[in-house]
Design a binder for these strands. Structure first.
Length: 990
DNA sequence: CTAGCTGCGATTTTT
DNA sequence: TCGCAGCTAG
């Protein structure tokens, strides 16, 4: 690094590696690093560096992120660093919105009608469903849609490599192609582009007209591990002039494989841009060490992954918790009690804002929401159900779309009978068909019919006709006319808000809601009002930052101007599906409930991950266990100071079926505490330190505690198995059919007895009660006195703790250190990349690969039957429909063989294993066995891919016939404040 | 042909 | 819990 640069302002708060990354002179820079290492910070700093120091104009820089939220945050951060509003000129956004901008400006060059709309998920789904139905093809619309999307998302370059069976077109494939063609034709006719089209067409545009990006000096990509093929191409095309690209990413956090994210893009990039400067960041600034260790224990089960160092800069922290509860609602109640406890015990140093509950699927939120609601804790829900998915909002949006694009038959069909106008399914279908055959839009058919210009073939009785004219065509025409007039010079302003308000009035929407939803029409109308506010905000934001979204002028290139508000509003709504990080306005602290996917890139001091059982994580409908594991890893690494996993023992919906602890957690469950830590002073101080906050004095904390406050996590049995109350629904049945050894909890003396003998699949609970004891029998809790039973418990706890610790130690050795031969992530990738492109080849191709690896794996005596196969990261996401051999249960953690006997090393420390005080025990432990395995080099045979015959064909897609005339959901986006939960927010009770 | 009622089923992740 | 399919009356 050139010394003179070192004192640049932006470099001052970076560590060495980050500084090197920020100021690298290489054309292409790849920064790959684990969670919490400041990737995004580094990226934003580099943007500032490139603009401020290197001197690129902001408008010549493209920054692409993966989500809207990330884009917004990045913009904010860059704005702060630049300090003068120049960030507004940067072409910054998620891929889709950047692509949309280019298409809006230059799309006509490739024959795109400038007034194109965006077909969202619901649109394409219902369209495909209709096509399938009409073709009477026995294809699952869902599969068809996935196939089409995949086809587009892949990009073209990959296709160049024929996969052999590609030539053989099976009957199914032919049908798919036909559906695809029809689908595209329909979109084209409606002047719509779907999400994938935005990218595909933008690639087309930039390929044919490179001049559109001739000004671009440099391109930066965040969350690179989640880019898919087409996005990769787009990235290259953005940078085609100067080929300067910076990417940041973390393979371990690749969780969008299902959306065709291709981890291969890592080495595609290295191949395409030799001389890339690779930088890895190893310091973790986010989390306490205990959290990192455990997260590594989980991710490290993936034997093929690249091992990265994660060096904690913070203290050890208390042991993360794995809590078992009786049911999902008990789990939710426990979460609530624990949230309360943490906040109280921190003397309100922590607030609800510091807490996140991360879910595998949004549908899991129900219990949590109601528990929070019951206890009066306000929360926001991110991801999952969206504001715009509400019926009433969807309807308004569809009206707006029809106003903007009268030819949008699907939107029209959805609202033609909302409010009720006596138009039923049959009529709608007939109208759509007539539109199809007459190549008129439904709108045209209707207007002509009502005016008497042309009688519709569809039967439209007079009363129906009148209602349509009075309630639909005339009001919308009125609105359109006003918009046109307003656009003329001197016209009366008729903005977005006015449009919506006039629309609501014309439809008598409030009355409509009262009629159709007598129970909750107030709430729904409130949503509508909220929507109006949002529209107002949008307009205001648009005016404030008019430079936003505008591409720089390029000499000799004419842009189509996009000055209408409505289309931009609609596009915004379709593309921006994230809640705004709305801490700004209301100051009421909110607990965050989020899907794990939506939580990527974020962090919270306290994180709960409920429902950690097989079927949830890994999800039963997922075909990629490794990705599910990474998902859990992402969730865990969001936590800064406290991490809680939990698992309801019995599923709620079914007949009290037993849940099985997630197989990602099961092998390492011993490393967790079984209940929340004791928040004594040292623990809290450490938390305060990580967060950079000041802990109130002990006195203050104590005084603020309610009189009946329970300072321990002991409101719920640590072993729900032995609790008296039995979960509702067949107590007897269950006790009897439950496996015998579990019915009675093993005695303490039997602690490790059953360990080796036929470890039953279910969770071994023997040690837990004592582990639990370990965390509550703190010195504070039991000053100087220990009963015999307690003592016994403590001993066993110590033993368990020792085992866990040893395990952890081992893993640290194994996973938290990069093997010496693994120089960097990119080195790793390089060494295996030669094989990576062949990952789809048949087993025969495999054997040649290891020889090519430049970084030779240490010779490990492979188990017979264990076949060395390329450590291709690519295999992590098999093509849909590929027959994989059943993904194996994760192998037990290496050498995780609990000895059949207690450890002899019990000392005084185990009573407080979570203490941050240096734990002599840890150091004194006998040295862990040498690592016996270099993870990168070997793995079990479970990843053989027998054949590709069915790849990509939507094979087996015959299940789940999907309803046809369902009007698709229309995920349009919340623009703001979507975090409103379904249920009304409850206010904190006294 | 539409609208309302009832009983059943089912539930990833996102641009 | 919600949403959808199927049925029946008007």
């Amino acid at each position: 690094m050139p010394p003179p640069l070192a004192n640049h302002r932006i470099l001052s708060n970076l560590n060495d590696a980050q500084r090197r990354a920020v100021s690298s002179n290489a054309a292409t820079v790849a920064i790959l690093a684990g969670p919490g290492s400041g990737k995004t910070h580094t990226l934003t700093s580099r943007v500032v560096w490139l603009i401020d120091h290197v001197g690129y104009r902001p408008e010549d820089v493209i920054v692409a992120t993966f989500t809207v939220k990330a884009a917004r945050e990045m913009k904010e951060r860059i704005g702060k660093a630049l300090g003068d509003g120049r960030e507004k000129k940067i072409v910054l956004g998620n891929f889709h919105s950047i692509a949309r901008r280019y298409l809006a400006a230059y799309g006509r060059k490739i024959g795109i009608n400038q007034k194109f709309g965006i077909a969202d998920d619901g649109d394409s789904r219902s369209l495909i469903a209709r096509i399938c139905k009409r073709k009477e093809v026995t294809l699952d619309p869902v599969a068809v849609r996935a196939w089409i999307s995949k086809k587009k998302a892949k990009g073209n370059e990959v296709d160049a490599k024929p996969v052999g069976q590609k030539a053989i077109k099976t009957a199914g494939e032919k049908d798919l192609e036909e559906c695809y063609n029809e689908y595209q034709a329909h979109l084209k006719k409606s002047n719509l582009l779907d999400f994938d089209d935005l990218l595909v067409r933008c690639v087309e545009l930039l390929r044919e007209f490179p001049s559109c990006v001739s000004n671009i000096q440099t391109v930066l990509i965040d969350e690179y591990q989640d880019t898919n093929g087409i996005q990769y191409e787009l990235m290259k095309l953005f940078a085609q002039r100067h080929k300067r690209i910076t990417i940041v990413g973390d393979p371990d956090q690749s969780i969008y494989g299902w959306r065709s994210a291709e981890i291969q893009n890592l080495w595609r990039m290295l191949k395409d841009f030799p001389g890339t400067d690779e930088i890895s960041l190893e310091q973790n600034y986010r989390s306490l060490d205990a959290i990192l260790k455990l997260s590594l224990l989980v991710i490290q089960q993936d034997k093929k992954r690249y091992q990265k160092a994660l060096k904690p800069v913070h203290g050890r922290g208390s042991r993360p918790v794995l809590r078992r509860l009786k049911s999902a609602s008990a789990e939710a109640d426990w979460i609530v009690s624990e949230i309360r406890r943490v906040i109280m015990m921190s003397g309100s140093m922590l607030t609800f804002n510091d807490v996140a509950i991360l879910l595998r699927s949004a549908s899991l939120s129900r219990h949590v929401e109601s528990a929070l609601g019951k206890s009066g804790i306000a929360y926001r829900m991110v991801g999952g159900k969206k504001f715009y998915e509400r019926l009433e909002i969807k309807a308004i949006l569809d009206y707006l779309r029809v106003i903007y694009q009268p030819g949008n038959n699907d939107a029209l069909a959805r609202i033609i009978n909302v409010p009720k106008r006596g138009v039923g399914d049959v009529t709608i279908k007939s109208l759509l068909e007539e539109a199809e055959s007459s190549s008129l839009s439904v709108w045209t058919i209707l207007t002509k019919h009502c005016r008497g210009d042309r009688t519709a073939k569809t039967k439209i009785p007079k009363p129906m006709e009148q209602r349509i004219a009075a309630g639909l065509t005339r009001p919308l025409d009125n609105i359109r006319r006003k918009m046109e007039e307003a656009a003329k010079p001197g016209g009366v302003a008729f903005g977005l808000v006015e449009i919506v308000e006039q629309l609501l009035a014309a439809l008598n929407f409030q009355k409509h809601l009262q009629d159709t939803h007598p129970d909750d029409h107030e709430q729904r109308w409130a949503n509508v009002e909220e929507f109006v506010t949002l529209a107002g905000d949008f307009v205001r934001d648009l005016n404030e930052s008019s430079a936003d979204e505008l591409l720089p002028e390029i000499e000799g290139l004419e842009q189509s101007k996009e000055d209408e508000v409505l289309p931009r509003f609609l596009a915004n709504v379709s593309l921006a599906s994230d809640a705004q990080t709305g801490e700004g306005k209301e100051n009421k602290p909110l607990v965050t409930i989020s899907t794990i996917h939506a939580a990527k890139g974020l962090e919270w001091p306290v994180v709960f991950v409920p429902a950690v059982y097989n079927g949830s994580i890994p999800h039963m409908r997922s075909d990629d266990n490794d990705e599910e594991r990474r998902l859990l890893y992402v969730a865990m690494t969001r936590a800064q100071s406290l991490l809680y996993l939990s698992c309801p023992l019995f599923s709620t919906n079914g007949n009290g079926e037993r849940n099985q602890l997630s197989s990602f957690v099961e092998p390492v469950h011993r490393a967790f505490a079984t209940k929340g830590p004791c928040f004594d002073r040292p623990v809290m101080l450490e938390i305060a330190k990580v967060l950079g906050r000041t802990l109130p004095t002990e006195d203050a904390v104590f005084k603020a505690l309610p009189s009946m406050f329970n300072p321990e996590d002991n409101l719920f049995p640590v072993d729900p198995e032995e609790s008296q109350e039995v979960p509702a629904g067949g107590a007897e049945g269950r006790t009897s059919h439950r496996d015998a050894p579990r019915a009675k909890r093993p005695r303490l003396s039997n602690m490790y007895g059953g360990q080796n003998a036929g470890e039953d699949v279910q969770w071994h609970r023997d040690y837990t009660t004592t582990m639990e004891a370990a965390s509550s029998f703190t010195v504070l809790a039991l000053p100087g006195f220990v009963s015999a039973g307690t003592h016994q418990a403590a001993i066993t706890a110590a033993n368990a703790a020792a085992v866990a610790r040893q395990q952890a130690e081992q893993v640290k050795k194994l996973a938290n250190r990069r093997p010496p031969n693994q120089k960097s992530i990119l080195g790793f990738v390089k060494s295996t990349s030669s094989s990576s492109f062949d990952h789809t080849l048949l087993p025969s191709a495999r054997n040649s690969v290891p020889a090519q690896t430049s970084v030779a794996p240490p010779q490990v005596t492979a188990n017979p039957g264990q076949q060395a196969i390329p450590t291709s990261l690519a295999t992590h996401k098999p093509a849909k429909g590929t027959l994989l051999s059943r993904p194996s249960r994760p192998a037990p953690a290496p050498d995780e063989t609990p000895k059949g006997k207690a450890y002899p090393c019990f000392s005084s420390s185990p009573v407080k294993p979570d203490s941050i005080k240096p734990d002599p025990e840890e150091e004194n432990d006998e040295p862990p066995p040498e690592p016996t395995r270099v993870a990168a080099c070997l793995h079990s045979t479970t990843f053989t891919r027998p054949t590709l015959l069915t790849a990509g064909k939507g094979a087996g897609g015959l299940t789940r016939p999907s309803p046809v005339s369902k009007f698709g959901r229309t995920p349009i986006a919340p623009i703001d404040r979507l975090r409103k939960p379904f249920k009304p927010l409850t206010i904190k009770r006294p």
